[in-house]
Design a binder for these strands. Sequence first.
DNA 1: TAGATTGTTAATCGATTAACAATC
DNA 2: TAGATTGTTAATCGATTAACAATC
Lengths: 232, 232
Amino acid sequence: MTLPSRKPGGIPAATIARLPVYHRVLSTFGSQGIVTIASEELAAACGVSSAKLRKDLSHLGSFGTRGVGYNVSYLTFHIARELGVTKPRGIVIVGMGNLGRALASYRAFGARGFHIVGIFDRDHEMVGSTLLCGQESFTVMPISDLAAVVAKNEASIGVITTPAESAQEIADLMIEAGLVSILNFAPVFLKVSQEVEVRKVDLAVELQILAFHDQKLDSEPSPQELSQVDIA
Amino acid sequence: MTLPSRKPGGIPAATIARLPVYHRVLSTFGSQGIVTIASEELAAACGVSSAKLRKDLSHLGSFGTRGVGYNVSYLTFHIARELGVTKPRGIVIVGMGNLGRALASYRAFGARGFHIVGIFDRDHEMVGSTLLCGQESFTVMPISDLAAVVAKNEASIGVITTPAESAQEIADLMIEAGLVSILNFAPVFLKVSQEVEVRKVDLAVELQILAFHDQKLDSEPSPQELSQVDIA
DNA sequence: TAGATTGTTAATCGATTAACAATC
DNA sequence: TAGATTGTTAATCGATTAACAATC
């Protein structure tokens, strides 16, 4: 009881959020034929400090070699393993407005081990129309088909691109259908049970945070010396 | 010198990131005719604790009334003022792939005090084509026009929706054109000078974080009791 | 006055950082 | 061995939380 035992799944949330970035950059290095990389160089490519990178990786295990660095493919594999991206995940998208259609057509979505298994809309006029998504094409389905499609394809993740008013209702239906991970683009806070993980992406919020930055600069004394010197 | 003087622009970054959410929710309440609101209720609608909300607001000043709550329009105004969203901001979008076209057409972008002043693409075949964006329509311009358009319209924010390979180059051009706020959807870390604020939105990263959550549940003991009980 | 709710305090928690011993 | 780089430690920093005095 007094032992300071290491918690089993105790990887900090901040670390988890950075692992996909490390994974992607490592993949790129790997495809360039780079075999070994030092934390300093990898960290620079990821936009973090080397101390932070090493600290993050230390939570997964000890995969580097002192004096040498990390084996790129070995580290890539272990991060992928930790993230669970070894197994492909099915996703459904609800809300076929501009954003929903773009995400359905977005190559980057499918490029990293995710595949769309269904697209949905509440609008009866939209249902039945076909969307070309790269090589595949999808037919917009009615929301009433959601549960069946999720079950049949063992979908993992629900993406909500509806207007704010419908988002909660759709989230409830997704959870009822068995989804426990939701990516929400609607500008509302979704009330869900504890087991469900919701990540919210609010594009207008991102712009407003940048507007705050703009404003601060407007009232600054010398807006003269802006040049490509330091690295943020 | 020994006085613990309050720093002038010392609002924590975590608070800034939440202010747009408070602002939006308050706007909604305002348009519903609600005059006064308590921190408990506002916090619930925003998905934060009331303690956090009050702490955040305390950094802006003292705009509530003890025993009563906050006046909705008064608070909305002061948050807008702090965020700098009172003045409309011009934005440019570079990269007219699926995502870029969607953002250009996305109503929510224009709805909160932002207006698009130009859309650009490197591809000569794309340049000159017209995009219907709600009521307005835009013609895709060549990158060589970027600086002129930014200057003429006093644009504030650059949005990068190019492939990863071109993103750094476009960022450099944006900064050269005078932009100091960039919203980057390309999956690369942009190297920029200190004065420039870059926010990165990586849709694949968001999905991968959710995949991590899925995986944890897969290996859980009882995937039985998932119901709409608690609030995350 | 009694009830309600803010604004602030102090404690806790988690994340970041710098430095360095371990070790290839 | 000498040089390089990891993994870990301990200090610092910032953010969250709970509690409550202030005050409407």
